[in-house]
Amino acid sequence: MTVLSTKTFIRTKPAQPQRRRRRLGPGPAIPFGLQLGPALLLILWAAGSGLGLIDPRILSAPWTVIATFGQLIADGRLQDHLGTSTLRAASGLAIGLVIGTVLAIVSGLSRFGEAIIDGPVQIKRAVPTLALIPLLMLWFGIGEQMKIITITLAVIVPIYIHTHNALRSIDARYVELAETLDLTRWAFLREVVLPGALPGFMLGLRFAVTLAWVSLVVVEQVNATSGLGYMIGLARTYGQTEVIIVGVVVYAVLGLMSDAAVRLVERRALSWRRTLSH
């Protein structure tokens, strides 16, 4: 007990300023800290518009944007564009996901597969999607096919890279274990390889989902008659900054929402890891 009280005594001492340790870490989290930056921007924007400091031809006022948003929803245009865009992004994502995963597994499990597949994917990774679009337009026209293929090509890369990396970094000890247990090749794949590579795949998926939306902007601005990118492009032609901002905000919300959705799936699928963070 005496020892305990001595400790308490020593603990109270650093309250004196000259003995206080300098805090080097960032300190405790600020409540609503993440929302603070965007809120500040919003306030500056509203104040600038309200005081007439921002020319509405450069940037519409927040209330104009909100009114336009309501109007676009009321006449159903926003829903139409959003539907078209979502369908494109989802199709490209789904196809790219399957192709990327299959390529990663083939390349991750066989040296021959790696020799054939890895190089081309790395080359694709180094080429910006934007640079491929003229070629893809020549090959596949300017219709839906070209758009979905562009998104697919963009999505394949992160899925492949992260899944392949996860496959290759599966602990050799598990491989040894599988050998002593006489696992068949299929059982090895199902029990060890695929679950082991799942964290990498989920990381790739998060990048892929974001990339699908980003690629959408590109393909829809190049040549389209519908979709969010088309809506933004048209608004640019007519100088309607409020519509452009509605489009940008919708993109941002879509991106954040789909990332949150993937993280939710990730937590479910990797529940065996969750116990670690407790």
């Binding site: 000890r173 040894e176 274990l177 599988a178 002593t180 679950p195 990797l270 065996w272």
Partner: peptide, 24 residues
């Protein structure tokens, strides 16, 4: 029919206890 016990338990972290025992 031989089995190996390693120094580390070498359980698959993504399989529960029973699934690890009956692996394969």
């Amino acid at each position: 029919n031989l089995s190996v016990v390693f120094q580390d338990a070498r359980l698959l972290p993504w399989r529960n206890v029973l699934q690890n025992v009956t692996l394969g």
